[in-house]
Every structure is written in structure tokens, then in C-alpha cells.
Amino acid sequence: MRSLLDIILTPDFAFSAIRVTTPLLFAALGALISDRAGAANIGLEGIMLMAALAGVVFSAYTQSALIGLLGAILIGLLTASMLAYFTLKLKTDVILGGIALNFFANGGTIFVLYYLTGDKGTSASLASMVLPNIHIPVIRNIPILGEIVSGHNVLTYIAILSAIGVWYVLEKTALGLRIRSVGENENAAKSVGVNVMKIRYIALALSGVFAGMGGAFLSMGYVSWFSRGMSAGRGWIALAAEAMGRGTVLGTTLSSVLFGVADALSNTLQLLNIPAELIRILPYVATVVGLLAYAIRETNKRKAKG
């Protein structure tokens, strides 16, 4: 145990936790904004995956990391719009629509990857770009704190700003008020002339943008290539984080951090003598435990109410 603590209580570990929280936070914000509008986005996992590939492809062919990022966001937006079309317009079941989108992403990314590189595993042969790391002046020189909060990928900072932005939009603006009203009492919103469909579409599109940035981080920040299935359940973990955060920005962010720590732990523990296979399941176990704790608490609360 001694050595475990030694590993965890280091600036390195905190740094790595922030790093792996980034894609989770993006996806969880996507889950949050769509859920608050009453249009759950179950397709986050697939959207992230497609955006991750898009980032690699766009940046490789333009040799511009910025265009790669924009490409990833665009693909996220388009995919979420497609999901919105099916669920809002054609009344496809939200869950089945999400499942289908994930199938689509799984197959579609490998298809495109193979078509472009002749490889079904990774995009190693594509000369894609990565997004830069940012060293914050002054803070970077502060011991420990500087080591932890400075030097992250630009998207990590954007994720934090996004969380604040989502909070701001939901709490302070008319759009946010409408999103929340549509999610909580559709009829009330309708009775004062709010266009429910439009608001839900906007919310789903925004969730696509966030998932898109999450995907871009995976392939253009976390690592510098695309590999099949690289979203690795983060879209699902994000749904759990949003549920545990009870739909609030702060709660969702904290739950994301919790799962991020579990993820970082699984990376770090590999240094110890524990089988890697078992360590890797840590984030998933944490998610199940978290989700169950949340569900049990909710059930008890309901029962207490009678």
C-alpha cells in the first residue's frame, strides 16, 4: 500500500487525472445539455469515435491541427443532427437510435480507416497533427501547482471553459431557460409558445459539438493517432457521470473527475505488480458502483416519499 500512496500523492498523478478526465468531461457535458432538454443522447460513444477519426483525417490531409479540430467538431455536429432527425422527426426510439449510431460509428470508422490506410487497426500511417499543449505563464513556475495545472493540451482548458460555459448558458441565458423548461415540463413550454422541437435540436447539436471535441482530444491530444474503438466506453461512462451528477454542471464535472481518477489510477497502477487486465477494468467497475449507489439512493428517496 505504501508504494500505491507514493504514486498517487504526486503531481504527476494529479496531472494525469486531469488529462484523462478531459474526454469524459466533454462527453458528460454533451450528455448533460441534451438530457436537460429532455432528449437523451445515447450516441455519444459513437459520436466521439467518429470525431476522433475525423480529427486525424482532416489534420492529416490539410496538415493543420486547427482544421482537424474543426473537422472533428463538424462530424460531431452532423452525427448528432442525424440522430436528432431520427429521434425527433422519425420518432426512432432514443435508445435504439443511440445503439444504431454506435454500430454505425464502429463499422464506419474501420471502413474509412481501411479505405484510407489499408489498415484496420490504427491510423499510424497517416501523418496527422496534434493539438498543442499550453504552458501557462507564471503558474507554470509555481512548484507542484504548476506541475499539475500547466502544460495540458489546449482541449483540456477548453473542456474546463466549456463546463463553465454550459453552466452560464443554462443558468443565465434565455436559451438555457428554454432548454430547462423543455426538459422539465414540455407542456408548460409549449403553452407559452416555446418551440420544443427546435430547442431539442439545438441541445442535441451542442451535445454533438462537445462529443466532437472529446473525440478530437482522444486522437489529437491524448495520443496522436486513431485506433479502432478508441472511445473505449467513455461515452457510456459519461452518461453515468451525468446521472450521478443529477444533471447539474458541478455534479457532472465532479463525477467525471471521479471516473477520471479511476482511469488515471488504472494507468498508474500498471507500474505496480498488478495484472494489467484487471487494472484496466477499474473505470468500468467504478462506473457500475457509482451508478448503483446513485440508483439505490434515488429509490430510497422515492420510497421515503411514499
Binding site: L177, R180, E184, N185, N187, V194
Partner: peptide, 18 residues
């Protein structure tokens, strides 16, 4: 009632005409 329970009175009143 066509009201959003978690909203304040103000928020309910101005919804749509903020």
C-alpha cells in the same frame, strides 16, 4: 398548471418572453 416546478416564479413568468 403549465408551470416548471424547479423554476422560480420569475423564471416561469418570463419563459418565452425573456
Amino acid at each position: 398548471f403549465m408551470l416548471v416546478p424547479s423554476f422560480t416564479v420569475v423564471q416561469n413568468m418570463i419563459l418565452g418572453i425573456e
